[in-house]
C-alpha cells in the first residue's frame, strides 16, 4: 500500500495547486507579480533525489502530462519540462539525502529551470511575448521565494515518507 502513497500525496499537491491555492490566494489585479505554485515539482525533485532518476522522470512526466491535460490546453510542455527537471536534479548522493539544505538548494534551482523552460517554450510557440527581465521579476523571483518556503515545509514529511517506503521495501526483500 505504501507504494501508492507517493503518487497519492503528489496528486493532493496537484489539487492544491489548481484548486485550493487559487481559492485561498486568488490572483489579484493590484499585484504586480504572479504567484505560481510549483508544489508538484517540489515533490518530483524530492522523488528524484531519494528514489533515483528513473522514478523521478516517470513521476515527473506522468504528473506533467496530467498538468498539461487538466490545467492547460497544450500537451507536452509540462510533461517534457518536468521530466527533464526531474532528470537533471537526480543528485542521489548520501550526503545530499541526509542533509536538509542541499535538497532546498536543488529544489530552488529546479524551480528556476522549470519556470525558464516553460517560459521559453511558450515564447517559441507564441504563447507569450514577455521579455526576459519582466519574466524574471514578475514570475521567476516571486515563484522562487514562495515555493522555496513551501519546500522547507515539505522536505521533512517527504523524507519521512521515503524512509518508510525504503523500510517496507527492505522488509519485502528479506
Amino acid at each position: 500500500m505504501i507504494r501508492f502513497a507517493l503518487p497519492f500525496f503528489i496528486f493532493l499537491l496537484f489539487l492544491m495547486e489548481g484548486t485550493l491555492f487559487q481559492i485561498f490566494v486568488p490572483p489579484s489585479p493590484d499585484r504586480e507579480f504572479y504567484l505560481v505554485p510549483r508544489f508538484v515539482l517540489i515533490a518530483v525533485v524530492l522523488t528524484s533525489i531519494y528514489r533515483g532518476a528513473g522514478s523521478g522522470v516517470l513521476i515527473g512526466a506522468g504528473f506533467g502530462l496530467l498538468y498539461d491535460i487538466v490545467y492547460t490546453d497544450i500537451i507536452g510542455i509540462y510533461m517534457f519540462s518536468m521530466g527533464f527537471t526531474a532528470y537533471i536534479s537526480a543528485f542521489t548522493y548520501r550526503s545530499v539525502r541526509t542533509s536538509f539544505l542541499w535538497p532546498v538548494l536543488i529544489i530552488i534551482s529546479a524551480i528556476f529551470v522549470l519556470e525558464w523552460m516553460t517560459y521559453g517554450l511558450h515564447y517559441i510557440i507564441g504563447g507569450t511575448d514577455l521579455l526576459f527581465e519582466e519574466f524574471f521579476m514578475m514570475r521567476a523571483l516571486p515563484s522562487l521565494i514562495m515555493n522555496g518556503i513551501t519546500a522547507l515545509l515539505l522536505i521533512y514529511p517527504f523524507q519521512r515518507l521515503f524512509t518508510r517506503i525504503r523500510e517496507t521495501e527492505e522488509l519485502q526483500h528479506w
Binding site: G18, T19, P27, Y34, Y71, T72, T118
Partner: peptide
Amino acid sequence: HRSPDKWTDMIG
C-alpha cells in the same frame, strides 16, 4: 480549478 501557471487564464 483555475490554471495555476498564469500563461493562460482559464478556469474549470
